[in-house]
Computed example of a mutant assay.
Amino acid sequence: MKADTQSTDLPCFDLHMHSTASDGALSPQALVELASQNGVQLLALTDHDTLTGQAEAAAAAKRLDMKFIPGVELTCRWNKRVIHLLGLNIDPDHKGWKGYLDHLSCLRNQRAEKIAKKLIGKGLPDDLLEQARALAGDGQIGRPHFARALLEAGLVSSESEAFDRFLGQGKPGDVKAEWPDMAEAISQVQKSGGYALLAHPTKYNLTFSRLRILLAEMVAAGVDGFEIAYPGVSQEQIGLLMRIADQHDLQVSSGSDFHTPKHRWTHLGRFPRVETHRHLIHALVAGG
């Protein structure tokens, strides 16, 4: 397994990226255009808890003769822990999406209000919520928008510092929400015709023993697989994850989790290569 390259008999692909429809820095069209410039030929837009960028991204991909895979990254919970579920090759027009995503949007807005209240209580600006909402625009509001608001206000030197001091785990802005259970999220993706996969499994601060339990419970709930290759995952971790995929007969996916060109640790189309018949890219290229 080699890093940062892809097999020559497959199109250059990226199955995990974000636009301004959620917490990305580029519009769906600009994101697709940058992906094309980077040589990506097949991509999935997977914004957090929204499908509003799908039509724009699909139209841009069509103009550029790229294959577009409709996608989403759903926030859900497992044993009171927040996890993210990728939905790939979904039907954005499936009738069940509206009510499900409206509920998530409501939860996000309620959480944003609680985050602002807690941070204002720590002496941060009274207009913090308004600034975060302005940065979110028409997209789903999240903690990254608060981080950018704090950066623009000159209260931190970087978005990373904002998370370290105010928004990260255990900090004042670490506000929990009653996200849907993982089984509900898996069912929603699959009812829309998509593949349900756990996003970036090594990024939940779980030991591999706990991760095995999570994945076993997800298998019992009908999950299709998990993301195996993404920025920050090590070759040792990929090997351990591959053994879990083999054990449970699961599919795997890969993506850059791209949010902004400012992040030096990731770029569109760049992530470790994993060559396996279990990779979802084979089905997507074949049109399944």
Rank of each mutant, 00 (worst) to 15 (best):
L129F: 06
L129N: 03
E130A: 15
Q131K: 14
Q131L: 14
A132T: 07
A132Q: 03
R133P: 10
R133E: 14
A134E: 15
A134F: 15
L135Q: 10
A136E: 06
D138L: 13
D138T: 14
G139Q: 00
G139K: 02
G139E: 03
G139S: 00
Q140R: 14
I141M: 06
G142L: 08
G142Y: 04
G142I: 08
R143I: 01
R143N: 06
R143A: 07
P144Q: 05
F146P: 07
F146G: 04
A147E: 03
A147N: 03
A149V: 02
L150G: 06
L151I: 07
L151M: 12
G154V: 09
L155T: 04
V156A: 03
V156Q: 04
S158W: 02
E161T: 04
A162D: 02
F163T: 04
F163M: 00
F163L: 09
D164R: 12
F166T: 05
G168C: 05
G168F: 05
G168L: 06
Q169E: 14
Q169D: 12
K171C: 04
P172Q: 01
P172V: 00
G173S: 06
G173F: 02
G173Y: 05
K176M: 15
A177S: 13
A177Y: 07
E178S: 15
P180E: 09
E184Y: 12
A185C: 09
A185G: 12
A185K: 10
I186Q: 10
S187D: 15
V189R: 03
V189T: 05
Q190R: 12
K191S: 14
K191V: 13
S192G: 09
G193P: 09
G193W: 07
Y195R: 04
Y195L: 10
L198S: 05
H200L: 07
P201D: 05
P201I: 05
K203L: 14
K203F: 13
K203C: 12
K203D: 13
Y204K: 03
N205R: 13
L206E: 01
L206R: 01
L206C: 05
T207M: 00
S209P: 00
R210D: 03
R210G: 00
L211W: 03
L211V: 06
L211F: 00
L214G: 08
L214T: 00
L215E: 02
A216H: 12
E217G: 01
M218Y: 08
V219W: 00
V219I: 09
A220P: 10
A220T: 11
A221V: 07
V223F: 02
V223W: 05
V223D: 00
D224T: 11
F226M: 01
E227K: 00
P231D: 10
G232Y: 05
S234F: 05
S234R: 10
S234K: 08
Q235H: 14
Q235P: 15
Q237R: 08
Q237A: 10
G239H: 11
G239L: 10
L240H: 10
L241D: 01
M242H: 12
I244Y: 04
I244K: 02
I244V: 12
A245Y: 02
A245R: 00
A245C: 04
A245S: 09
D246K: 13
D246G: 11
D249I: 11
D249P: 07
D249N: 15
L250F: 03
L250A: 00
Q251G: 11
Q251R: 14
V252A: 02
S253R: 02
S254R: 04
S254N: 07
G255K: 02
D257V: 09
F258D: 08
H259K: 06
T260H: 11
K262A: 15
K262N: 14
